[in-house]
Design a protein around this nucleic acid. Structure first.
Lengths: 236, 236
DNA sequence: ATTAGTTCTAGTCAACTTGACTATAACTAA
DNA sequence: TTAGTTATAGTCAAGTTGACTAGAACTAAT
């Protein structure tokens, strides 16, 4: 219903269609430096408009699920992933986002842990791309990704979002690498360390990460809770 | 269409209906202290559900306007106001927000200047309320207002939002009063002043506010631009 | 076994910011 | 002229931040 086959009068009468999309971030080691970098999974459009181009995973909203559930389901269906962090990004509703119909997209953004991301389904029509090398995407999806990146950098500076890109245990240097990858600049190890150590939500464990070619760093654990979105306010 | 008269099967088949609502903030002098306080206009529900209760102004989205335009129009139609500041708040899409149908509401929040707010239409079915004394509202609107207040406080702490609640010219003490009203605590005048003076977006004018019972304070002007929402990114 | 190389970790120091507070300036009203 | 009030500038201690130094603890090579 309300597809491009409807005539103009019908389209004018029909309510704007409502879609859910998700910008999914995960860390993967860069092929050159081996350092972690930001990656995003995209799906190939198999029909018009923008057939053949890459786009954000998304789909319609069903009647039995909340917006967040729809985003979560969509993510699972297209990539097989369960997000560690999921938050509403923005509702995009410009008049000419799609050439064939009026679509309002409620977009979520997600962070998944690298262990999950390594398992992610990849196929002819689902591929991961470096966040800074996406090329031209379908619809207004480049602008959406830009905004999601802006939001990620912002949340990182404030708050407790970096840990959702890492596993349960991590070293302080790994956290620093996340910041360096997302903010795209180097940070002083000693000063960064001092800041994290003054954060009560980061807990020392007795364990150390073995296997490096140097002094083994202590492992830490994140004990804080996510933010206070309307969707997440009931989490005690 | 898709009203409460539709049977269950029809409601399941129909797409969720899409509405735009707006939380509008303006300053008005408190009746007791005379100091500025936050007020919000509400409209009375004239039909079921929640007939007789107060609710946020809102309405459907038409095909010829963007989400922001719809919010702006709605605001003008219900209160006669033109917002000085308008930003998307959140898309609320819980399953049981309305007892009769599935509604997804894209909510905006707005700031209007006191000169505008004084002219605002008020009638049997449109009234202004103190933001901290709203009573029970229709739907999930209490939660929405709470979230809007949280966002306002947040934006205030960071950024350049306070000036949109004031006129073009203002004294530094007036800015402080805005902060005190919104954050609900007193601030040291001298320290607050020092901070504002170090902000490049606040410009001294040569003029002074006359008419007080004390030394006339200098008038300032705000020269900064609003934020960088997706909706507002093209504003140069 | 020793040494070089690496990262981890703790600490110092100056610059800057913040909160509490003092003091003077400039106006009005009595 | 004086009291009352707010505007405005400044001081001081405490805390935070960025640049930097240095030793600790491990691995890998000699």
């Amino acid at each position: 219903m309300y597809t491009s086959s409807a005539n103009v009068a019908e389209r004018q009468a029909a309510p704007p269609s409502l879609a859910i999309s998700t910008v999914i971030f995960a860390l993967r080691p860069s092929e050159k430096s081996g350092r972690p970098t930001l990656w995003i999974p995209l799906v190939r459009r198999i029909r018009e408009p923008f057939k053949g181009l890459w786009a954000l995973p998304g789909g319609p909203l069903t009647h039995t699920e909340s917006l967040q559930d729809a985003a979560s389901r969509n993510l699972r269906e297209t990539t097989g992933l369960a997000p560690e962090y999921l938050e509403q990004l923005y509702a995009f509703g410009g008049l000419h986002r799609s050439p064939t119909q009026r679509v309002v997209s409620i977009v979520y953004w997600a962070l998944v842990q690298p262990t999950e991301a390594a398992l992610a389904d990849e196929s002819e029509n689902v591929k991961w791309f470096r966040a800074d090398r996406l090329g031209d995407l379908a619809f207004d999806h480049n602008a959406i990704v830009d905004y999601a990146l802006w939001r990620l950098r912002n949340k990182l500076a404030y708050g407790s979002v970096a840990y959702h890109l890492l596993g349960e245990y991590f070293t302080l240097a790994q956290v620093r690498e996340v910041y360096e990858a997302v903010l795209d600049r180097e940070l002083d190890p000693a000063n960064f360390r001092r800041q994290l150590k003054s954060t009560p939500e980061i807990e020392e464990t007795g364990e150390y990460l073995q296997g490096g070619k140097h002094r083994p760093p202590r492992l830490y654990r994140f004990t804080g809770r996510p933010g206070l979105d309307p969707d997440n306010r009931s989490t005690p």
